[in-house]
Design a protein around this nucleic acid. Structure first.
Lengths: 226, 226
DNA sequence: TTAAATATAATAGTAATACTATCAAAAATA
DNA sequence: TATTTTTGATAGTATTACTATTATATTTAA
């Protein structure tokens, strides 16, 4: 079964909606590929234009600058993960199972999606890990926050926090634990790949080990006595 | 009592040792101030030179580029925190107390240091929070890792992991928990300041609340049954 | 179907960034 | 005092991050 997923992202992120033209979609697709391959710092609209191919000026008609393009990509990813979580939690009643499912969905393992998505998901997953923090670790954070650029991330955190509350209504830090879970899932994945001395995972680089660690951490916190 | 702290950082980080000249020290001091004030992305060696004042070319004789300058600053900070932890744990025998002390030291609260330090510590703390991840979230991570640029961070994580092992010798993920603790302490602080919906702290913005959350998380994980 | 509106390509240009090079003056050191 | 090292002053280059203009192609609306 193939279902479809699409989101309407914050209009202030772009000058011209990339979803609404062929070229716009190519900018997104090639943008994902390029950020994945050479990293955000090395990306320029000139290189991106050459890859599509189109002209630099044309890309500037879609996105003001590469930072907004990055936020666009990462926002898309958060919305996608939120959707996945909502979908997969639908048939679960037990809060513990839900949390385990969330952790499973946060840590990627080539789980071929049952959703038809144009974007290269695995590349986007890596982008959200390696570049995602850069969307808000910048001097523009407060301004961007006012423009609601981080809403998809906040929605995801709230979604997870609500399940934590369901599991333990007395737990005091559901949102902090949710944001920590999301960030930690990314960092431990990155460390496993690049800085193994910062974690305890085997050479197998099996994401299942990350999930075990995260389950231990999350349930440990939620079950802790006050 | 005033004690002194100084470290010898990886020689490959600089072309000329900034500790060994007045101008070098000014580059570091002004660099901290400027990254703190305008952020890493906005920093240029030209602006930095104007602030000191000296010439752009002179700064290039000390540091190859601003990324290495950033790593230099952040490495210095990790080494400093490690030193603080070693010093303050000296008179503690109980592992639980040690862990609480570590958390206390990781979360800043204007605790005037008893160590004479030339650098502006509070600014450096913010830099390590807002810019620290950028030292390794880059395409050069593997190369930089081979050059041992992340050794101070790894040493800190190992130091904390050893205390976790002391507290619970059976715990499976001491290093992962240590790196998660360090990262989480930073992110929750940043969220408290800029994105409060991602955490559960009051408007007081009291770092003590972060410490409580972190203690809950760490002891929860460490006390969890296998 | 044709006219009008819109999007894109092609080209050019600017200010700032991220450097490198040269050489003379100043400062440190032997 | 002579020698070495460091810094300042200046210049220059390639790339980045944009903006502007105009002609052409494509889409849409009458």
């Amino acid at each position: 079964m193939q279902l479809n997923f699409s989101v309407k992202l914050n209009e202030k992120l772009y000058l011209r909606d990339p979803e609404r033209s062929d070229l716009g979609k190519q900018i997104i697709t090639a943008g994902i590929k390029m950020v994945y391959e050479i990293g955000y710092e090395q990306l320029t609209f000139k290189k991106l234009a050459a890859a599509i191919p189109t002209t630099e000026a044309t890309i500037y008609r879609y996105f003001e600058n590469k930072h907004k393009l990055l936020i666009y990509l990462v926002d898309w990813y958060w919305a996608y993960i939120s959707f996945q979580i909502i979908f997969h939690l639908n048939n679960l009643t037990n809060a513990e199972d839900k949390i385990k499912k969330i952790i499973d969905l946060l840590v990627w393992e080539d789980n071929a999606s049952e959703f038809a998505v144009d974007l290269d998901q695995k590349a986007l997953y890596y982008i959200s890990i390696a570049e995602g923090n850069k969307t808000y670790l910048s001097k523009d954070v407060d301004e961007n926050n006012r423009e609601m650029f981080y809403k998809p991330y906040k929605d995801l955190v709230q979604l997870i926090a609500d399940i934590f509350k369901e599991y333990n209504p007395d737990y005091k830090y559901p949102r902090s634990l949710a944001s920590s879970l999301v960030e930690t899932s990314h960092f431990q994945y990155y460390f496993m790949q690049h800085l193994p001395r910062l974690c305890d995972f085997s050479d197998q680089k099996d994401p299942k080990e990350i999930e075990e660690f995260l389950e231990n951490m999350v349930f440990g916190a939620l079950n802790q006595q006050a």
